[in-house]
Design a protein around this nucleic acid. Structure first.
Lengths: 211, 211
DNA sequence: TAATAAGTTTGCAGGGTCTGCATCTTTGCG
DNA sequence: CGCAAAGATGCAGACCCTGCAAACTTATTA
């Protein structure tokens, strides 16, 4: 939403600020008290808006802790569709997701807080990825399209499986990383996970750090 | 919970009956009206108990539609721990889960209804997965133990990934099957999915039914 | 600049989920 | 029968979430 000059107007900037304020308040409060003990009222109050306004920005209580950016999914799907056909799908996905991880490196403090929130309230990982359910369907469609299916054909098992497994690999990576942070960089865990997927999930050597 | 004769007493039988009545009422109502339009009050009423009692059996509204049997996870974990060490983990998991699928074949009618519920309310698949979150952690621990880690060592990335991916593969299979039912048997879709996992998720031939 | 249109925030009412607690009923067992 | 344990129920209360209408702010047009 930009005005005719292509510049975000005051309106849009205020909206983004409000959203950011709510999301940040949510994470900070949850890091301290646990997500399930932080009410919508408390978040809204900390962000300086009414509780009703909270629901203008997030569909549910839990969504506030997830910072889901719809643009991410959009970019990933475009990458899947536009990548050279010769590349394995799994590689395309890995790189597309890896590119989005820049935010994690840049805003390290807020992501550390989120790691703390997830440690305290593991159910959020699932609820969060649950929120990505629709995303996953669309990703599966993008994969199917890449593999030659027309946009209107039903999505087959393979694209569905790839999309589901890829997002799950991210979740498992996060879980592992959260447990080991701050010793390890997330990007490394992430790449290890995709390595396993591409190798048919054969068991690593017993002395490997993965085991 | 059995009495000293090893026979379930009236008390236990009534409990199981109540639980079954609630679960069945939930699925039947949801198949018709959609899970999100079926209140706890309606389910309880159809099952002949009070709404308060519903929450003595299920932790949440959504749980009633999932029919999660804790014994299933227990058996799968035991299979993982006790299977011959020579077998690939993925194969062990596939067979362990396949063995549990007998119920799907036997009680076909109720599972068809559930397929309908899932078609109408896809978010339940994720909530279901969420309900299995704790299960997944335990499964990961079982995998880790099988691979030689002691019971108290932290679970590494690989076991975590295998457990997460395996349960996700089941979910993706269900989604695919729900879409194609009743043309295909679930067990076949399920085995195809594990086939893909074991092969490193390489893309199938373009004329394959999976694409 | 003034008027109007369009978008946001807010309060309020209301339905629904879920929990803790006290009470009453049923079951298990001597 | 009579007691103790377990389950069922009603109720109060906190919280989540939605629709609606009024108030307010920003954008656009005359």
């Amino acid at each position: 939403m930009k005005n005719k000059d292509g510049v975000p107007g005051l309106r849009e900037r205020k909206k983004q600020a409000t959203r950011a304020a709510l999301a940040e308040a949510a994470v900070r409060l949850a890091a301290e008290h646990g997500a399930e003990n932080v009410t919508v009222e408390a978040i809204s109050s900390a962000a300086g808006v009414s509780a009703r306004t909270f629901f203008n920005y997030f569909d549910s209580h839990d969504d506030a802790f997830l910072m889901v950016d719809p643009a991410v999914g959009e970019r990933v799907r475009r990458a899947v569709r536009e990548a050279p056909a010769a590349l394995p799908v799994l590689d395309v996905l890995r790189e597309a997701f890896a590119a989005e991880l820049a935010d994690v490196e840049e805003r390290h403090e807020i992501w550390s807080l989120r790691a703390k929130v997830f440690q305290r309230s593991p159910y959020l990982l699932v609820r969060g990825l649950g929120a990505h359910m629709a995303e996953e369907q669309e990703l599966a469609a993008a994969v199917a399209e890449r593999l030659g299916g027309g946009p209107d054909e039903p999505v087959g098992l393979y694209p569905r499986l790839v999309a589901a497994v890829a997002t799950t690999a991210i979740r498992a990576s996060i879980e592992d990383w959260v447990q080991r942070t701050p010793d390890v960089a997330f990007i490394d865990v992430f790449r290890d996970a995709f390595e396993h997927l591409g190798s048919g999930l054969v068991a690593p050597a017993a002395d490997s750090p993965d085991a």
